[in-house]
C-alpha cells in the first residue's frame, strides 16, 4: 500500500497516509474553498486501504481550525475508518486540541457523537 504525504499549505493540512505503519495523520488547518477536491484522493486511498487493512490503525488529527465544508469531508474519512473498525480491525482516533480551545474540543465531541469508533480527546498545552 503506497504512502501519501501532502505538505501543508495556507489552506490545507499536512496529511500522511501510511499504509505500511497503519498510520494516518492530519495536521494544521483545513479551509479550502473546494474541500471535496482536496479530500477525494484521501477518501479513495482509505477505500483501498480498507480492503486489506493492517491489524491496527492509528489516526492522529491535530487541526488548528477547519471550515464547514471540510467538516463534512473529515466525517467522510471517519466513516471509512468506522467501516474498517466494524470489519474487525483495531482503529484508534486521537483528536488533539489546544488547551482552552473550546471550538476544537466541541468539534471533536461532534464527531465522537456521530461515529462509533474508539475516539480519544487529547488536550495539548499551549
Amino acid at each position: 500500500m503506497e504512502t501519501i504525504i501532502r505538505e501543508g499549505s495556507p489552506k490545507t493540512p499536512y496529511v500522511r497516509l501510511d499504509g505500511e505503519k497503519g498510520l494516518i495523520e492530519i495536521k494544521g488547518r483545513s479551509i479550502p474553498e473546494n474541500s471535496v477536491e482536496f479530500y477525494k484522493p484521501l477518501i479513495d486511498w482509505l477505500d483501498k486501504y480498507g480492503t486489506t487493512p493492517l491489524e491496527s490503525t492509528d489516526v492522529n488529527v491535530q487541526l488548528e481550525y477547519f471550515n464547514t465544508s471540510s467538516s463534512k469531508c473529515i466525517l467522510d474519512i471517519f466513516k471509512k475508518l468506522e467501516l474498517i473498525y466494524k470489519k474487525g480491525s483495531k482503529v484508534q482516533i486521537n483528536w488533539y486540541y489546544e488547551e482552552d480551545d473550546e471550538d476544537m474540543f466541541e468539534a471533536g465531541e461532534d464527531y465522537q457523537s456521530i461515529i462509533n469508533i474508539p475516539f480519544s480527546m487529547i488536550e495539548m498545552e499551549e
Binding site: 474553498e33 474541500s35 471535496v36 464547514t68 465544508s69 467538516s71 463534512k72
Partner: peptide
C-alpha cells in the same frame, strides 16, 4: 451530503 454549492449548509 454536501450542498450543490459545496458549502455543506453549515
Amino acid at each position: 451530503g454536501i450542498t450543490s454549492k459545496g458549502g455543506g449548509g453549515l
